[in-house]
C-alpha cells in the first residue's frame, strides 16, 4: 500500500510517498532531505508534533509568556499537555530557555520559555 502525505518538518512541505507492507514502512520517496524520511516513518508509527502555547506569568510585562516543548510530543497527548500547561502559573522574571515544566506528563519533553518576561 502507498500513502501520500505532506512533510511538515520545514516550510518546504515536500509531498511524500510512503510504501507500506502492513504497518512497516518499506520506502519513502519525494523527500528532499533526511528529515522527510524520518518524518514519514514516525508519522506512520507514532505521529508527534511540537507544542507551542503560553503559560500564565505574574509580574511581567505581559500576563503570559510563550513556551514550547523541547521535543515533539505524541499528537494524541496534545490536549492533555495543554490542560496541565494552562493550570500552571509562573512568576516573572522568566528568561528565554528557562524550563517551566519538567518532563511534561512523562513525555521526556520539557516546557521552556521562548521569550523573556
Amino acid at each position: 500500500m502507498t500513502k501520500t502525505m505532506t512533510c511538515v518538518a520545514c516550510p518546504l512541505g515536500c509531498q511524500l510517498s510512503v510504501t507500506l507492507d502492513g504497518d512497516t514502512v518499506v520506502s519513502v520517496t519525494g523527500n528532499t532531505c533526511k528529515r522527510g524520511d524520518a518524518y514519514a516513518r514516525t508519522e506512520i508509527s507514532n505521529p508527534v508534533r511540537s507544542l507551542t502555547t503560553t503559560v500564565r506569568c505574574e509580574g511581567g510585562l505581559h500576563p503570559v509568556v510563550p513556551v514550547k516543548t523541547t521535543l515533539p510530543i505524541p499528537k494524541d497527548r496534545m490536549f492533555e499537555c495543554m490542560k496541565l500547561i494552562n493550570e500552571t502559573v509562573v512568576q516573572a522574571p522568566v528568561e528565554v530557555g528557562q524550563v517551566l515544566i519538567h518532563n511534561i506528563l512523562g513525555t521526556d519533553a520539557h516546557v521552556i520559555a521562548t521569550n523573556n518576561n
Binding site: T52, T53, K68, T114, N115
Partner: peptide, 19 residues
Amino acid sequence: CIHTGFGLHYFGEELSGPE
C-alpha cells in the same frame, strides 16, 4: 508569533518567533 518554524534557513534550526 509564538509557533515554531522560524530560522530553518538562516539558523539551521527551528525556532519560535520570539526566539
